[in-house]
Design a protein around this nucleic acid. Structure first.
Length: 302
DNA sequence: AAGACGAAAGTGGTTGA
DNA sequence: TCAACAACTTTCGTCTT
């Protein structure tokens, strides 16, 4: 797939322009290949630890805003440069030109927007270890947003992040706003705002985050057995029936359940260990743990 | 010495007037 | 837009293993 020589002038000095996805001959300017394929990482990761240790790459490419705020427009005073009236024929022509000029600009700026957005989406998805399926769903949702002209006056990146967050929640993929904010390089607050906006405008029905979906993630991070995992889910099911889940942070509830389950199965972890992987404090775990213990009458021997 | 526990004060976000 | 509010965090002192 890689081209060594320029097919037009035969020169071997080819330069890659990653920002535009082109390989260009520096002698004659011939574009040798367009759309360099992103082959993805050349390594494979078999679990999230490896993912974390092998993933690399510099700072995200920051694209400037499309068209840098410069737009051309054909004014609507049907006069010539001296201010004299012009013929009906010319007026009609100008009107058509205006129309098409506008359409063409919109079309290309949308394309550019999408190109940037999809690149960003790709980057964030791979950092979050999302499946292709999830990524596709996010891309589709993003297109809908663009069609509805959401995201005006908003950073493309925030909209992308918001869309990813929404899709993760809809597919029960445990990713917190914090995680996404970190890899996207956007403030949590900003993403949250964009997310709520998108959800409202598109009337998305996003289920409440189920603490159960965090259990496998936490157990894996703590290297706990499947038994613990089952137990934790079991605890959470009971907890939900007792209404101990609503209003509380799902990660905190899940963390407490995992903590209890581990203790019950004799694979005890300290509160701190669990707290760290769940990104909550020990205090929160204790509070949830206390509630769970009381309401479910669990006896946890220490 | 380390972990567990809980009280009290502080913080950021949501909600309802 | 502002104030009340709940959840969560930080900090710190005490108890248990």
């Amino acid at each position: 797939m890689s081209v060594k020589k320029c097919p037009r002038c035969g020169s071997t000095s080819l330069a890659r322009d990653y920002e535009r996805g082109e390989v260009v001959c520096t002698e004659c300017g011939y574009v040798v290949t367009e759309n360099i394929e992103d082959l993805g990482p050349e390594w494979r990761a078999f679990d999230s630890d490896q993912m974390a240790s092998r993933a690399r790459g510099g700072a995200p490419t920051k694209y400037t805003r499309p068209n840098k705020g410069l737009v051309t427009e054909i004014d609507q005073y049907d006069r010539d440069i001296r201010g004299a009236r012009i013929s009906q024929k010319k007026i009609a022509q100008l009107s058509r030109m205006r129309k098409w000029h506008k359409r063409a600009s919109i079309a290309t700026s949308m394309e550019r927007n999408l190109a940037i957005a999809l690149t960003e989406l790709d980057r964030i998805s791979s950092y979050l270890g999302l499946s292709n399926e999830t990524k596709e769903a996010a891309a589709l949702l993003y297109r809908k947003c663009v069609q509805k002209e959401l995201g005006r006056g908003r950073l493309i990146e925030s909209l992308v992040a918001a869309v990813i967050y929404a899709v993760c929640r809809m597919q029960h993929i445990p990713r917190t706003l914090d995680e996404i904010a970190r890899v996207a390089g956007i403030e949590k607050k900003e993403i949250g705002r964009a997310y709520r906006f998108v959800r409202r405008e598109l009337k998305l029905k996003v289920p409440l985050t189920d603490p159960k979906s965090y259990v496998p993630k936490f157990c894996a991070a703590l290297k706990l057995s499947g038994k613990v995992q089952e137990k934790a889910v079991q605890i959470l099911k009971k907890a939900m029936k007792k209404g101990l889940v609503s209003g509380r942070g799902p990660t905190g509830v899940a963390a407490a359940a995992v903590y209890i389950a581990a203790a019950l199965e004799g694979e005890r972890k300290t509160q701190k260990e669990v707290a760290d992987v769940a990104n909550v404090t020990e205090v929160t775990i204790r509070n949830r743990y206390r509630e769970l213990k009381k309401e479910l009458k669990l006896k946890v021997e220490l």
